[in-house]
Design a protein around this nucleic acid. Structure first.
Length: 319
DNA sequence: TACGTCAACCTGTATA
DNA sequence: TATACAGGTTGACGTA
């Protein structure tokens, strides 16, 4: 056995003993040097000696090799690889993280290590790489999650903003309707004891629907039934606003436009009933509570839609 | 002294 | 069945 050549590693402030051109025995820092083999063996507890000990032999070829190797140096403390050895192993790991037997023996020779040591180093290195990779993946997922969360928050804010705009628009609409109702009430003749409409305006659905929009719009207030009642659709609110869920109207200055034809048709089904010839309980001639105003309004809207579709209906609106 | 790192080990599993 | 590997553990060691 060659005598130790003492060696001080500045990176770890520790001393070591290098034998020949090969392995370095790690002896720890100045406090641990020369503590001796007995203390090392004393550190091995009963449990670990029952298991295959650090210095014990095994059946594999590598470890038979190890046995010779360890026999020479037994009993020494656990060795640390030199920075040069680690550097070369790292380079080898970069090119290929798996170790073929041939490469293993070549590396072992080159580094003055046992093939088993090289194999163990690669196994541990792969485990470390996997741990790091998991950390990287976690960081990546976390930043992705944070980014999505941030987007979600801004979308949520935008949604709240739009909802409050809708509320404001609906309030505007109601105010406008109330104003026109007041005007209508003031304009209407006093027929408090008469619950029938003015003979100028046909009372039946058929006739009412046949009235030109301009005429109906001008005479609708001659009906003695209060306009508010006619506007009421039963839910107590605006005939237009209440029957359409959500923001069906958009404010373009002072005028309101329906967003799409589906809303119009869905909310004024009886106009379609006449077109299709399908009767329903709403189509029995009785007033569904919508009244003149909303019907005329609906007709006007429907005409607008049809004009957009390229169908000219003129002023007369037949259901 | 607690804790992190590293070399070495153990066990179970896949594969040729 | 030998071998290699993954995953987990152990014990030595360095360091704050």
């Amino acid at each position: 056995m060659e005598p130790c050549r003492f060696f001080f590693d500045p990176s770890t402030t520790s001393s070591a003993c290098q034998q020949g051109g090969g392995n370095m025995l790690f002896l720890g820092n100045a406090d641990h040097v020369f503590r001796g083999p007995k203390s090392v063996m004393g550190l091995m507890d009963q449990e670990s000696s029952r298991r295959r000990s650090f210095f014990s032999s095994s059946s594999s070829q590598d470890e038979l090799f190890d046995e010779e190797y360890y026999d020479e140096q037994l009993p020494e403390k656990k060795r640390r690889l030199t920075p040069d050895q680690v550097h070369m192993l790292e380079k080898s790991f970069e090119t290929e993280n798996k170790l073929e037997p041939e490469r293993k023996t070549q590396l072992a020779k080159k580094l003055g290590l046992q093939p088993r040591q090289v194999a163990v180093w690669f196994q541990n290195r792969r485990a470390r790489w996997k741990t790091k990779q998991l950390e990287r993946d976690y960081d990546l997922l976390k930043s992705s999650y944070d980014s999505l969360l941030s987007n979600y928050d801004s979308i949520l804010k935008e949604n709240h903003k739009l909802k409050s705009e809708v509320v404001s628009i609906n309030q505007k609409l109601e105010t406008k309707e109330e104003t026109s109702n007041i005007k209508a009430a003031a304009f209407a003749p006093d027929h408090a004891d008469d619950d029938k409409c003015d003979p100028l305006v046909p009372a039946g659905d058929e006739m009412r629907d046949a009235v030109p929009i301009s005429y109906a719009a001008g005479l609708q207030y001659s009906c003695s039934v209060k306009v508010e009642d006619r506007l009421s659709s039963g839910s107590g609110g605006s005939a237009v606003v209440d029957e359409v869920e959500g923001p069906q109207l958009v404010d373009s200055g002072d005028s309101y436009n329906f967003l799409n034809e589906d809303n119009v048709h869905n909310n004024y089904p009886h106009h379609h009933h006449h077109h299709s010839g399908v009767n329903s309980e709403e189509d029995d001639g009785s007033d569904d509570g919508r009244g003149y105003f909303s019907d005329v309004f609906a007709a006007a809207v429907e005409e607008q839609v049809q004009q957009e579709e390229g169908v000219s209906m003129g002023w007369w609106v037949w259901s």
